[in-house]
Design a protein around this nucleic acid. Structure first.
Lengths: 186, 186
DNA sequence: AGATCAAGTCAACAGTTGTTGGCCAACAGT
DNA sequence: ACTGTTGGCCAACAACTGTTGACTTGATCT
């Protein structure tokens, strides 16, 4: 199983696609632009990935890669989660591509939903004081994490962009901690 | 100054535009579709609003209309703000149009930035224990509010959609309160 | 009634998009 | 050397986009 000649361009296409989808969103990222970035003909993109939707599906394949939290002390889970999320977002533009697309493409939104349900859900299920509210708690965690990413990386609100990572974690950590482990509000 | 005949259609166009921009985003909301919704010819849209960008600018004109918080007790400001924001969002699809567009259109993002800076900034400036961090605190408030709106109205994460308004306010209120008035983290 | 002007319709333009099929060049195995 | 396959390019298509200008209708005013 040696790497074929095409595997190189295949990967180049995927990288260019991720970049374009991340910075321009699904609609404005044209196949022609992606092909130009990868220095190939647009028709190659079609040949390798079928159509634009399939290319996006391949480019937006993402895993949060949450660490195993079973060994972290219960009351530092919030901070740990916040730090990991921030780190994960900064190192991979896939999440950005997914978020930018999810706002207008239903398929991408669905992927976002299942991503968070599958990854944060279990954490909440284990930590929530009331198992019945586990899903709600996971959802709340998502609102704060995605909201931060939205403001910092997409909307670029100046005060949120300025925040250095440690500071951000120090602010967000307790919020996430509260959503996960504090007694229900009201 | 009686209302001219054209004012009716002018308003119809604006309403249709807001609806389309809110549900489809800037790119997918075509002038033809908007015109069809308003039951007129596409060229009328151009005549009245010049071009698509200007139409969007007119349709996405929004004001948070924050209540005067100087008389609300300092420690209930978080809940009050959360409730108002949620209420405002549900009653007017303009914010949705703005958010959907802000993710890919720089002009819309800029409007979002100045909107939050101008409206939440002053509140934070008055409540923050440390005047120097007022902007940061306002930004954090924005992350939670926009993140909630994103998950509930745009991405439609099931557990966040299910949440009834009072419950949502009870969860978000304390977070916002903390961002505004609690001593800085770290 | 006839002239004036706003309100609205129609058809077309130029550009861009995803997508397709035919063609060419390089390589591999015989 | 020959032949089949693989990787790549080119030109074109059909659909759709924002936008424009010429034309028709209808009301209003003198």
């Amino acid at each position: 199983m040696t790497t074929r000649r095409s595997d190189t361009t295949r990967a180049a296409i995927l990288a260019a696609a991720r970049e374009r989808f991340a910075s321009d969103g699904f609609d404005r990222a044209t196949i022609r632009a992606i092909a130009a970035d990868a220095r190939i003909d647009p028709s190659m993109v079609m040949r390798y990935y079928g159509n634009k939707e399939a290319l996006f599906a391949a480019a937006a394949d993402f895993d949060l890669r949450l660490p195993d939290l079973r060994e972290t002390p219960r009351d530092t889970v919030g901070i740990t989660l916040a730090r990991h999320f921030l780190h994960r977002w900064e190192g991979d533009e896939t999440l950005m591509a997914l978020l930018r697309a999810a706002v207008t493409k239903e398929v991408a939104a669905e992927r976002m939903r299942s991503l968070f349900a599958a990854q944060i859900g279990p954490v909440a299920a284990r930590l929530a004081p009331d198992p019945a509210q586990a899903a709600t708690r996971a959802g709340l965690v998502a609102t704060q994490m995605l909201g931060f990413a939205l403001c910092r990386f997409v909307l670029r609100l100046p005060p949120v962009v300025t925040l250095d990572p440690d500071e951000a974690v120090a602010w967000l950590g307790p919020t996430i901690q509260r959503y996960l482990t504090d007694p229900a509000a009201r």
